[in-house]
Design a protein around this nucleic acid. Structure first.
Length: 521
RNA sequence: GCCUCGAUGGUGUAGUUCGGCCAAUCAUUGCGGACUCUCACUCCGCAGACCCGGGUUCAAAUCCCGGUCGAGGCACCA
């Protein structure tokens, strides 16, 4: 019977089904969903957060993470909270708060509410006391080394066994009063020292750090750990969904849920996706800071970096980031995205707004005989008329790109784009040629090349892959020199243009020389 | 070492829940063509993938078992 059915051709089956059971046909053309699936979603009641630590400038991984959260809120009509996780006074820097806020708004994401975790210190203290009173936490005076050894071995700490709630409360009070130095006492959760999840082995909840805080100065010296601060903040801010990358680890999710439970809080829904990596660029804040400190890159805004500052300075458009997320999604597989994707998206945004101009690198001088001096007018863009036109005065000396050197053979006929045809006579000296004017009419088979007559010197910084085969390429920031047409002087600083047959660049400085940076091809 | 997660073209993904419509989607990349007085944009075409080995089944990218490889976590950082 089955074999008989299988023998019927597919089209036949479709025809029969359509005729006899039209109602059973389910037409489904599912749109590809770039957002991760969520549980417990209630339209209009979703609250997500952007939780940066203001200890460095944002990088692309965080930016894409913000995009995902923004998109989720957008889809479900929810709220976005910018929460600064600034509870490590040793790391927090004042300038970074604004840097994150700026990056988020720059990308066009929305922020409905903003908080600083460090503004809730009394709350953490109250919650810690609550845990101590409930026998869920204790003060531990062991050294860091012993604690870590015990956690490794799964050995219960004597502080856990011996300290009564009264003693713990008293010790905690002393911590708050500043009677202990850094490292001399911590509050620990009574977790499970035998748990396979090592994070659950009596983790530290609060510790002492006397370092001044960028916002609060010396006001506090007992600081909550991330795993303690986070569930409390999420609860009071009403966060329903946490979407974060895997660097926080599945094990923390369990811990944070446990802490929530002990505090009588319902934990939010966790969704984890992979870290965003870019081929050839460091994507860890720590690593980037190292490169900056070691002077391997010129700063946080070095063109080769994937920080907010670098990307923005380079000329990557704000809309690109949301678009990246829509294209690559938020999966769990460990992957690296390619610069070419970023470039391709960016190109689509900048191309309709970019004037096209001429530039020749490594210039070659060509003297043309028989040419009459003339003024020509060329559009700034072949399709977008609103970008206007520019005039070029052509004399008998022009410059060609060193890239086209191979074409400069005796007798070769070339088409100077938008101008005229020339015939190469001879090479008169190093980098100098003599040519002959050959009329203006378009010759279909002559190579069309860029040229410059009246020029301005141009210096272009071109970033390449910082990492090649896992090794730092110290020469990855290249400098290209050449001549650009004189109209480059009329551009504005910050303007993005296309240098034909070269690539897209951003104008950084207009002086005797014009300084630009290469964005991409 | 321990824990968790993952594996589809060069890159990123869709499809896996519930096996058949998958000789496998879309994008990017590469190559070719059209358009254009650019190697840009746009349009058309081509190339290129189910980690390996077993098993279940009429039928496996999809289910089961065993490997391999990769990522993340295992702080008094976040």
């Amino acid at each position: 019977m089955i074999k008989e059915i299988n023998a019927i051709p597919q089209e036949e089956i479709e025809r029969i089904v359509k005729e006899k059971y039209p109602d059973d046909i389910i037409e489904e053309k599912k749109e590809r969903d770039f957002l991760p699936p969520l549980t417990n979603v209630e339209q209009g009641k979703v609250v997500v957060r952007y939780p940066p630590e203001p200890s460095k400038h944002p990088h692309i991984g965080q930016m894409l993470s913000f995009c995902i959260n923004h998109l989720i809120a957008e889809r479900f009509g929810g709220k976005r909270i910018l929460r600064f996780d600034d509870t490590n006074p040793g790391k927090v820097g004042k300038e970074f708060y604004e840097s994150f806020r700026e990056a988020i708004l720059w990308m066009g994401l929305k922020i409905e509410e903003e908080v600083r975790a460090s503004d809730y210190m009394e709350l953490y203290y109250t919650k810690a006391e609550e845990l101590i009173k409930n026998n869920d936490a204790y003060v531990c005076r062991c050294s860091r080394e012993i604690m870590s050894k015990h956690r490794e071995q799964g050995k219960v700490c004597s502080c856990n066994i011996e300290n009564t709630d009264e003693i713990n409360l008293d010790l905690f009070d002393k911590m708050l009063k500043g009677e202990y130095a850094d490292g001399e006492a911590v509050v620990r959760l009574r977790g499970d020292m035998k748990s396979k999840n090592h994070v659950l082995r009596d983790p530290v909840l609060l510790r002492i750090s006397s370092l001044p805080h960028a916002i609060h100065g010396d006001k506090y010296s007992v600081w909550p750990m991330y795993d303690f601060e986070s569930p409390i903040m999420e609860n009071i801010m009403g966060v329903t969904h946490i979407l974060r990358s895997s660097e926080f680890g599945k094990m923390r999710e369990e811990l944070q849920s446990l802490i929530s439970k002990k505090l009588g809080i319902i934990p939010p829904n966790f969704t984890e996706y992979r870290r965003f990596k870019i081929i050839g660029a460091p994507t860890q804040g720590r690593k980037i800071r190292e490169l900056v400190n070691d002077g391997i890159v010129t700063g946080w805004d070095d063109y080769r970096l994937v920080t907010y500052q670098a990307l923005k300075k380079r000329g990557i458009q704000p809309e690109v980031f949301l678009e990246i997320v829509k294209r690559i999604g938020a999966t769990k597989s460990a992957t690296s995205i390619d610069w070419s994707l970023i470039f391709s998206i960016n190109r689509k945004f900048i191309e309709p707004n970019s004037k096209h101009l001429f530039f020749v690198q490594d210039p070659i001088k060509v003297k043309i005989s028989n040419i009459t001096t003339q003024e020509i007018e060329i559009s700034y863009h072949p399709k977008i008329d609103s970008l206007g036109k520019r005039k070029i005065n052509v004399k008998d000396v022009i410059y060609l790109s060193g890239d086209d050197r191979g074409l400069l053979k005796k007798g070769k006929i070339l088409r100077l784009k938008d101008l005229c045809n020339i015939k190469i006579i001879e090479e008169t000296s190093q980098n100098e040629y003599k040519a002959e004017f050959l009329g203006n009419e378009l010759l279909s088979d002559a190579p069309r090349i860029q040229w410059v007559s009246e020029y301005v010197p141009v210096v272009i910084i071109k970033p390449e892959m910082l990492y090649l085969n896992n090794r730092i390429d110290k020469n990855s920031l290249k400098k290209i020199q050449g001549y650009g047409e004189i109209n480059l002087k009329k551009l504005e600083v910050g303007e993005i243009i296309q240098l034909e047959r070269f690539g897209y660049v951003k104008v950084n400085r207009i002086n005797k020389k014009i300084k630009m940076n290469y964005i991409h091809g």
